[in-house]
Design a protein around this nucleic acid. Sequence first.
DNA 1: CGATATTCATTGATACATCAACGTTTATCC
DNA 2: GGATAAACGTTGATGTATCAATGAATATCG
Lengths: 144, 144
Amino acid sequence: MNIAIEEVVLFEIEKTSKLAKMYSQREFDKRQVALTVDQWILIKVIEEYGPLTQRALAARVFRDPASVKRTLDLLESKELISRKPDDQDRRQHQVELRDRGISLIKELMPMISQHRKQSTAGFSATEKQELVRLLKRMQDNFLD
Amino acid sequence: MNIAIEEVVLFEIEKTSKLAKMYSQREFDKRQVALTVDQWILIKVIEEYGPLTQRALAARVFRDPASVKRTLDLLESKELISRKPDDQDRRQHQVELRDRGISLIKELMPMISQHRKQSTAGFSATEKQELVRLLKRMQDNFLD
DNA sequence: CGATATTCATTGATACATCAACGTTTATCC
DNA sequence: GGATAAACGTTGATGTATCAATGAATATCG
């Protein structure tokens, strides 16, 4: 049974992605942080690029707007973010961080930075760049 | 706002993984194949390694046994697989392909092979190997 | 200016992901 | 051998992913 390298590549990408997410989630749980990794990513992106619309937010994190909407509902109930209807265009809502969101991010950033470093521990600068370069080329192959 | 390369790497892995799955799913839908990508992966693994227990199957595809169980329920209702209680150990079930599963795989393999090749189109043999090597090293970084 | 088309957020339906808890069956240990 | 522990599959709860459809607001076009 000959297994094509192409198959291995796709499998390893999927596996790496899952492992990274599981690793982060365990860290959150260990520290009693009542957040999922996807929720964390949203509030971090809102901090960096907000206020922004739900659609713009979804595009930035590469998720479906319907899915992002539901996650925002949860973050709103935790009082970490708020949504305000836009005055110029009342179809869209501006999403922004609330105080509790801001302080939560400040609190968690050290752990997050540590996790990011851990992901490429032992990699040279060249290897990190090469990995990103190859991944982007693969992405292009899927955009037809 | 300086964005660490570690952050980019993790993001690109996630993005590549999502794109690959979306690309495959669109192909399935286009051809009216009534399967999700995850369902396809399960029956393909059962074909290659079956019969096997649900737990062994879950470990092979790197998924949660509870999740695999539910997907197997769907595949069973489509009459693509069957489950038999093991005589030696009645806690576990042996999962195997049924005739319809076998012929479905035969029918879809050309498309799948094409998709796998597409993923690494333009890659040299060295680049493919390098990508897999870097991914595996990253996985090791998460196994503590 | 008024009909038509598009955009945004939302909701419903279906599927997958993870963990915890549970019943049944099998292993282990005193 | 009988109590205790562990393994397998299952179910429930919660969160995320995708597509299709809907309502309200805005753009566009004749």
